[in-house]
Computed example of a mutant assay.
Amino acid sequence: MAEYKCSNCGKIVTLDEIGLKAKCPHCSNRVLIKLRPKIVKKVQAR
């Protein structure tokens, strides 16, 4: 599940909470930063 961090209030918001509005449900800020996944991918070099 994608998680976003509000640039104004700093709350972590999931995609289910946002919906199609693209607004923070806590402070109505429109700038959301997508968080990186916690799993690190390892790629072998050729």
Rank of each mutant, 00 (worst) to 15 (best):
M1K: 03
A2G: 02
E3S: 02
E3N: 01
E3I: 00
E3A: 01
E3G: 02
E3L: 01
Y4W: 11
K5H: 03
K5P: 00
K5C: 03
K5V: 07
C6V: 00
N8L: 14
C9Q: 07
C9Y: 09
C9H: 04
G10T: 07
K11F: 09
K11W: 06
K11I: 06
K11P: 01
K11A: 07
I12V: 15
I12H: 02
I12N: 04
V13I: 15
V13E: 00
T14A: 06
T14D: 15
T14I: 06
L15S: 10
L15C: 05
L15T: 09
D16Y: 07
D16A: 15
E17K: 01
E17N: 07
E17S: 07
I18F: 05
I18V: 15
G19F: 05
G19K: 11
G19N: 13
L20P: 06
K21A: 08
A22M: 15
A22N: 14
A22D: 09
K23H: 08
K23P: 00
K23Q: 09
K23S: 04
K23C: 06
K23N: 08
C24Q: 00
P25M: 02
H26M: 09
H26I: 14
H26D: 07
C27K: 00
C27G: 11
C27A: 08
S28V: 03
N29P: 10
R30P: 08
V31Y: 11
V31L: 10
L32N: 08
L32G: 10
I33F: 08
I33N: 12
K34V: 05
L35C: 04
L35H: 06
L35Q: 13
R36I: 08
R36S: 12
P37I: 09
P37C: 04
P37E: 14
K38T: 12
K38R: 14
K38N: 12
K38P: 05
K38L: 12
I39L: 11
V40A: 03
V40K: 00
V40T: 05
K41A: 02
K41I: 03
K41W: 06
K41D: 07
K42Y: 12
K42D: 06
V43L: 15
V43F: 14
V43G: 01
Q44V: 04
Q44E: 12
A45L: 12
A45D: 06
A45W: 12
A45R: 13
A45E: 11
R46F: 09
R46E: 05
R46K: 02
R46T: 02
